[in-house]
Design a protein around this nucleic acid. Structure first.
Lengths: 224, 224
DNA sequence: CATAAATGCTACTCTAGAGTATAAACATAG
DNA sequence: CTATGTTTATACTCTAGAGTAGCATTTATG
């Protein structure tokens, strides 16, 4: 599909008739859809059996296609893993950034952050879990990119904690270190939550909010 | 070495001469030592590359022995994984039980629990991390045993939180659920701590104590 | 409807690693 | 110093799965 993408670009540049461009665009959408479906099923198997133990034949079978089909949409198995890990961390980061864009005090923002990120993690549990478990299987270059995203996440969270510390809303000795505990608590949800299990997603999200609020709350009393 | 163990038992039962028993005992110790060394190196590779991606040939090479040597001490690769996971969770559970045996208020006990378990997790990071990551690779029967140990851990921790709740030392809405957050926070240490990294083991342990204390602390003010 | 382009499948190759049959080396007892 | 048992290595087998070459099928276009 790299070829297809190139063709589309060229068509646009050359200002081909509208219909052709429309058709090319539709093709792109179909290609993107196929890639997404492959990723979904792959993440399902990676989640259940692990990356190494999953065969692309089984993924293909689940999709009612064949292995070469997958290879025409992804370079190799490693690229699949990279996209899954990337999705897992990128979704969390986007949720964080959106939550931070909401106006409010540090306490209000933190509450929204935890709520949204926790929800995203539960909704995309497979991607997040595979990211946490299989990071070690990534190519060095891919691993670096993923680590950078994670670092951005922790840094932005630390900045929020620092803001709350300066306004006196939070009591944290060391914002960067506390951020790691908070992001760890959020990650833990993916490893532990089980759909249809003992506790509902809403209960887990509410718990997460409470826990994080307590972690940053001044000893003297409650805020936010 | 199962055979060897049997022989020793029989020697004891039959009251063989002292020397023979002493020799048999020494053999047992050597066998146990070899098993431990194999486990150490295997956990090293499982930690670095993952269970599936690790070859027993590489483990053997590291020990300057051969693959059949390993197979004469372990039934198969899965048994190695089971013993590693078992060690990871059992050590944490033992640390918890020892800490609970110390007399004191719920707050004092909780502090000791977190301190000791956190230390054990850092000291045995490989075993704990492999357990958290590779649980899915265990045979169903083995997985069940490991889950039972984990459940015991969470249950005992929940009992402590409940005790503190009844004495008014802790403010927790739901002890069993809070226990899972606390044990998650402790597990997170294994996944995140890096020896020689940005923060020392002592800093991490102290942080963990602070975080857990805040998580259970009544909104009105500090205890313990 | 013919032809070209794209899409997908059949049927492989090749490597790698789990597990083993068997023989060598070593120790121990008599 | 020979016989017996124990420990370890050599040298395999066999399976399984990643990745591919080339053929078949479908779809779009003039």
């Amino acid at each position: 599909m790299h070829k297809l993408a190139d063709v589309t670009d060229i068509a646009d540049l050359m200002d081909k008739p509208r219909k052709k461009r429309a058709v090319a665009q539709l093709k792109d959408e179909i290609t993107a859809y196929k890639r997404r479906r492959i990723l979904e099923e792959a993440s399902h198997f990676f989640f259940l059996n692990g990356y190494e133990a999953t065969t692309l034949d089984s993924v293909a079978e689940q999709l009612n296609v064949t292995k070469p089909f997958i290879y025409s949409y992804y370079k190799n198995k490693g690229e699949l893993l990279y996209e899954i890990c990337q999705t897992g961390i990128q979704l969390s980061l986007s949720a964080l950034e959106e939550a931070l864009a909401v106006e409010g005090t540090a306490s209000e923002q933190l509450k929204i952050v935890v709520e949204r990120v926790a929800r995203i993690i539960i909704e995309n549990q497979r991607y997040v879990t595979v990211y946490l478990r299989e990071e070690k299987c990534l190519q060095p270059e891919d691993a670096r990119r993923i680590r950078d995203l994670r670092h951005t996440f922790d840094t932005k969270l630390a900045a929020l904690l620092d803001k709350g510390k300066r306004t006196g809303e939070f009591e944290v000795m060391h914002p960067s270190r506390t951020a790691i505990w908070v992001s760890g608590l959020l990650s833990w949800i993916a490893l532990w939550y089980h759909e249809g299990g003992r506790w509902s997603a809403t209960e887990v999200v509410m718990d997460a909010i409470t826990m994080v609020q307590k972690m940053v709350q001044p000893a003297g009393g409650k805020h936010g």
